[in-house]
Design a protein around this nucleic acid. Structure first.
Length: 115
DNA sequence: AATGTGACATACC
DNA sequence: TGGTATGCCACAT
């Protein structure tokens, strides 16, 4: 329900999409940005996730990686819960901070959510 | 309003 | 493979 603002922040949108990512899947910043209608705001997606820890809800930010499937954001995760470990627990294989067979687990919101 | 920022994407070397 | 440079855009200050 909307109050004063008709639209939520771009961040809120990012959080919503990330939370919709199925277990064992992963997507890219660019894909999310595109789905939100701002394909050139991939940086904003990462920016948003940077604040995800401050966000009230739990954001599976570990399911969001860059275009190469590389865990570029792992350095931003808490040491107690590394990004690659989180992914492994969901069945995603990670090697050298990169998702193995990324395209196999790739989850594109602009496709999956439009079915 | 202006400036700084960045977990990207792409290009180039 | 990795460093540098540029474009890009929404948010923070």
């Amino acid at each position: 329900m909307k109050k004063k603002t008709d639209k939520y922040s771009f961040f809120e949108n990012v959080y919503e999409v990330v939370k919709l990512i199925p277990k064992g899947r992963a997507t890219s910043y660019g894909a999310i940005a595109k789905y939100l209608g701002a394909a050139r705001s991939a940086r904003m997606v990462g920016y948003a996730l940077n604040s995800c820890f401050a966000h009230a809800d739990k954001i599976p930010a570990h399911r969001v990686v860059n275009r190469n499937g590389m865990l570029t954001g792992k350095h931003h995760f808490p040491d107690e819960y590394p990004m690659d470990e989180a992914l492994r627990k969901e069945g995603i294989k990670v090697k050298d901070d990169k998702i193995v067979d990324f395209k196999a687990v790739f989850w594109d919101p602009s496709i999956e959510l439009s079915l």
